[in-house]
Nucleic acid binder design. Structure first.
Lengths: 213, 213
DNA sequence: ACATGTGAACTGCTTCACAGCG
DNA sequence: CGCTGTGAAGCAGTTCACATGT
């Protein structure tokens, strides 16, 4: 049943994203049915885990057969909220901002960058693929006018908390943060961090402790 | 004591990175001692968690007092393997690669990008801040010659598995992957993924399910 | 007196194993 | 018969609470 799920762990959500990607690959190859075994085999998880993850949201499979690829794809998209498109603001048009703007996987998943803001007067006014860069001083008005749902922050760590406070003040509830700083936000706002230095540090730890495994 | 730790969870390692960052902030402010309470307060964790995390590796605090900031910083750097410097190769000099190359937090933590590789003949031969871009065809020789420890992959998903296989073939044991693909590697190789589309999808899910919290 | 270090209790995620159903 | 869906068991990570040491 597609009933209201009780509690969904962060890891389950991440795996759903993964399954969706695999399903799309299967779909391209013209595969119409997959088993939990096959879905698990592709990535780092188990068949039981796949079934548990999906069962939180309903029963999408056919016993003795498996899951219908296009149907399961649709269901996961719906669960993740990807059947609609999301309006995204990019704050910070530096190198990271530029890379993100070009990143093809955002668009294909329904994330539309409708707003770009920057501090640098030399960049303000420029057109990026049809989107005019506006000054970060106009953040509040701009985000309101362009009806932004999600803010991506690619600004220096020194200013990121200021930017967050302003983003939160216009009722934005979801933030993707690229600055290596722990943000303070009200607890109805969701923040996801992409911390590249932290990822390298985890690799460093793994290398040093390679012996004990 | 700094004895051989049994089992260290991924989350503990991530939090150590975080603590280190906070310690550096405290150090800048001239604070000489912090309690687990203060370390936890800064970021999203608890005092008990801080003490548990640290106790895996030794006892670095003084009862009744707290932790000496510079000492604990040194210890965490040692634990994470950050007392030495790591030689890093950047494969892919596109937008994401360029952003990463400029990213200041890599250098300050001892990650030195000593090698840049790209596919595009127009980019090969260029100097990026003293590092000459070499053709990805020379990957094996170049990584060996430049004694690379860690490879950062910022290449299109269509080619990433090929690149991984070649990187693995020259005995590199740590990979930071920016392509939205589950990589196949031997199990003595550690891979960390930075999947920005997945992060946005998690935000999408959170927005859709905001009601039930 | 105060904050660490740590066993014990708890919570939640993962794996197991099998009943249920096409 | 085969593979899903799921309660129960197992395991890992977190929180609690207090003994320990300065």
């Amino acid at each position: 049943m597609a009933a209201s799920p009780q509690k969904v762990s962060e890891s389950t959500v991440r795996r759903l994203s993964l399954y969706l990607r695999f399903l799309e690959e299967f779909e391209e190859k013209g595969v119409t049915t997959v088993s939990s075994e096959e879905l698990a085999g592709r990535g780092g998880t188990t068949a039981a885990q796949v079934r548990k993850d999906l069962s939180i949201f309903g029963s999408f499979g056919k016993r003795g057969l498996g899951y219908a690829v296009p149907l399961l794809g649709r269901e996961i998209r719906r669960i993740l909220g990807l059947s609609r498109s999301w309006r995204v603001a990019l704050v910070g048009a530096g190198r990271i901002g530029a890379a993100l703007f070009e990143y093809p996987n955002f668009r294909t998943r329904g994330f539309r960058i409708v707003t770009v803001l920057d501090h640098d007067p030399k960049k303000v006014g420029r057109l990026w693929d049809g989107t005019r860069i506006r000054h970060v001083d106009t953040l509040e008005e701009t985000l309101r006018e362009t009806k932004v749902d999600i803010a991506i922050l690619a600004v220096p760590e020194e200013v990121v908390q200021d930017v967050v406070d302003r983003v939160v003040s216009v009722e934005i509830k979801a933030i993707l943060n690229f600055a290596p700083t722990q943000l303070r936000v009200p607890n109805d706002v969701v923040v996801n961090d992409v911390n590249m230095a932290m990822e390298l540090e985890a690799l460093s730890f793994a290398l040093v402790n390679r012996a004990l495994r």
